[in-house]
């Protein structure tokens, strides 16, 4: 994205193109439930938002969190509990999930930002594993069973979310809101300071920025948005289980982002779509999904570290130079 936006800004023709493409994409998203299973689409939207939230941290601050499942899965538990046990309205349940994830982000982030780079990744992984153990034992999460049979209920007490299309458009609205929020964060003065920290942390410190505060701020925002995705998923699928808080889930969101393109706006969406589609496709075959995910990881790291969208942007950037 850092590359992408600047590039688009310099190229008015491409800017128009990207607006057109964005319009087409939006129309496609609005029409999609008439052509595909809404539940499949909603799954992609939830994971796409999750991946975008994760990408906010690695792509724009350069922090690799290996514990984002805690926010995604934790929010799913909070939302499911609020809606099922307390009888909350679904949207407020989702917002509570996001708020809970933000709170967890504050705690985990506060500890993790005390170390950098590789240690940061290990600490977030360890703390999220701790949270997974708590979820296994705490009474309100119901251990191995998870929280099942969460009612979708009525949005604001009016719209029946048991209607697949109603649920889909709510999910789409939340997804677009999340994406807009990320776009605003990245292109704000705050976002520019984050990018400066990613480029050169020492220089940012010497310029007088309280780097730790900015990192923590970004971490909490990323956690909250991951929680928004997780809470939505709990309403869509009507359950919250251990699967979503475990380290494998943190690995999956890393893969989605890496595959699509770290630091690009739409890369994580592409990556999430591909990974979910692949998992759906393989669910009926004999091939072990974990192995395939591992193989994609290895190929991405060795052969195209920019990811699919990142490589395409790089290719487009080179091409005009060659033809000019």
């Amino acid at each position: 994205m850092a590359v992408g936006t600047q590039y688009l800004a310099e190229q008015p023709r491409l800017r128009t193109t990207s607006f057109v493409l964005g319009g087409v994409a939006l129309a496609a998203l609005l029409a999609a439930p008439f052509f595909f299973y809404p539940i499949f689409l909603m799954s992609i939207l939830c994971f796409a938002l999750f991946a975008c939230a994760f990408n906010l941290l690695i792509g724009y601050v350069g922090l690799l969190s290996f514990g984002h499942a805690a926010f995604f899965g934790g929010a799913a538990y909070f939302t499911a509990h609020a809606v099922k046990v307390w009888g909350w309205e679904p949207l407020s349940g989702i917002l509570l999930g996001a708020a809970g994830a933000a709170g967890m982000g504050l705690i985990i982030g506060f500890l993790a930002i005390r170390r950098q780079g590789i240690y940061f990744a290990m600490i977030t992984l360890a703390l999220s594993q701790m949270f997974a153990f708590i979820c296994l034992q705490a009474p309100f999460t119901h251990g191995e069973d998870g929280i099942q049979g969460v009612p979708r209920g009525h949005l604001l007490g009016i719209i029946d979310l048991n209607q697949p299309h109603a649920m889909y458009y709510l999910t789409l609205a939340i997804f677009l809101f999340g994406l807009f929020a990320i776009w605003r964060i990245v292109n704000s003065p705050f976002g520019n300071i984050l990018k400066a920290i990613r480029e050169n942390e020492r220089r940012a410190i010497s310029l007088g920025y309280r780097v730790d505060r900015y990192k923590l701020g970004a971490f909490v925002m990323s956690a909250a948005l991951a929680g928004l995705a997780g809470g939505t998923k709990a309403i869509v699928f009507q359950f919250a289980t251990l699967t979503d808080v475990q380290w494998q889930m943190s690995g999956e969101v890393i893969l989605m982002t890496l595959l699509g393109g770290i630091g690009t706006m739409i890369g994580p969406i592409v990556g999430a779509g591909l990974v979910i589609a692949l998992q759906n496709y393989l669910a009926s075959s004999q091939f072990p999904v974990t192995v395939l995910i591992g193989i994609i990881f290895v190929i991405c790291v060795l052969l195209f570290r920019r990811g699919i969208v990142g490589e395409i942007l790089e290719f487009m950037k080179r091409k005009p130079k060659g033809t000019a």
Binding site: L64, G251, I254, V291, I293, G294, I295, F297, V301
Partner: peptide, 19 residues
């Protein structure tokens, strides 16, 4: 960046364990 080594070995772990 050392993070790539972490991601590569994570992928390898998934392959071994999954297989």
């Amino acid at each position: 960046d050392p993070l790539y080594g972490l991601l590569l070995t994570f992928g390898l772990a998934l392959i071994f364990e999954g297989a």
